[in-house]
């Protein structure tokens, strides 16, 4: 078995274990309804986490995404209210704006050789501030196109609703998987995560890739913002505070190394689902308060960090042991 897949197996194993626990406690949780809700409720998180996975794989971090989601909702709501442009146009406009915003951050990170943490922290305040500039209130979205989006679902057997935004999330994961694992851009992302200097010597165009990475994350954050606005039906500048951290948690629980260079986009989906499942369990239980979610997630995070350290040690001892790769 290939050791590089261990974290992914661990992630899947934990998810299956969580499913089992839920099933034993509440057998009726094993329904397409719960599944449908799980996908719908976590759609915006899953989408933004895909972008975050790419960023973290490259050894970076993007703290701006939570604010960008909030900005997106406000932008759409205010534009719909004031501009009279059709909703799809506004959405396209928004995606352009957030993608450019991400690209600009990537450009700064590369050009100034600044830590992504600082640049995206600034981006976080900027986007949040921009949302406030548009409005300080929660702006409801009233639009026929939106109504159609909200009502679009496929009725699965068992009365579960596979909503459009749930499908969009799954599609984003699929796109993320292709981008990360099946393109040259993705290879460059992993290379950057392995070491910028080495990557440069191997022929990675570092600047271009960095810009691409943060642009991708910005795009995903914008898309997530659209989904979130569909989900809540409003735009509110104070929404999704701290979502960037939840996304980072999902990525790490999904088996991606926080220091970059190793991980799987599919793992991130499982990470999001695991977190959603814990949430659902707590809702079902009813007697547990919701901060238990945070505690369990905290515990899982710790577990994964320990696991990754252990794996790292495992691979380094393999490296040093004479059997590994002995010449024939």
């Amino acid at each position: 078995m290939n050791p590089r897949l261990y974290p992914l197996y661990a992630t899947i194993g934990i998810f299956l274990f969580a499913c089992l626990v839920c099933y034993i406690q509440f057998p009726f949780m094993a329904s397409t309804r719960v599944l449908g809700n799980l996908l719908t409720d976590n759609a915006y998180l899953g989408i933004v986490a895909v972008g975050m996975t790419i960023v973290i794989l490259s050894g970076g971090i993007d703290l701006s995404v939570g604010s960008v989601i909030a900005f997106s909702g406000v932008f759409i709501a205010v534009m719909l209210r004031d501009s009279g442009l059709p909703a799809p146009v506004i959405m396209a406009l928004l995606l352009v704006v957030t993608t450019l915003f991400g690209a600009a951050m990537g450009g700064l990170i590369h050009a100034l050789a600044m830590p992504p943490f600082i640049v995206t922290l600034a981006g976080m305040f900027l986007a949040r501030g921009a949302a406030y500039m548009l409005t300080i209130d929660s702006v409801p979205i009233v639009d026929p196109f939106y109504d159609r989006l909200q009502d679009a679902y496929y009725l699965m057997p068992g009365k579960g609703r596979l909503t459009l935004i749930g499908v969009l999330m799954l599609a984003s994961v699929a796109v993320g998987m292709i981008v990360a694992h099946r393109t040259r851009f993705g290879a460059s992302v992993f290379a950057l995560g392995g070491g910028v200097q080495t990557a440069r010597l191997m022929g990675v165009r570092v600047g271009r890739t960095t810009v691409g990475i943060y642009a991708f994350s910005g795009f995903m954050a914008g898309l997530s913002g659209i989904v979130f606005s569909v989900y809540t039906g409003s735009g509110y500048p104070l929404a999704t505070v701290g979502t960037e951290l939840t996304a980072i948690a999902a990525v790490v629980i999904g088996g991606t190394l926080l220091t970059g260079g190793s991980g799987f986009v599919f793992g991130t989906l499982i990470g999001v689902m695991t977190m959603g499942l814990i949430q659902t369990y707590i809702v079902f239980d009813g007697s547990l308060s919701s901060w238990w979610t945070k505690i369990v997630i905290g515990g899982l995070l710790l577990l994964f960090i320990v696991l990754q350290k252990g794996l790292l040690r495992l691979t380094t001892t393999r490296l040093a042991s004479p059997q590994a790769g002995a010449p024939v």
Binding site: A187, G195, V204
Partner: peptide, 18 residues
């Protein structure tokens, strides 16, 4: 002279990179 490949990529990815 310095380390010029990426330990976190597979041997194949390193060889075919780019």
């Amino acid at each position: 002279q310095e380390v010029n490949l990426l330990p976190n990529l597979t041997v194949a990815q390193n060889l075919c990179f780019g």
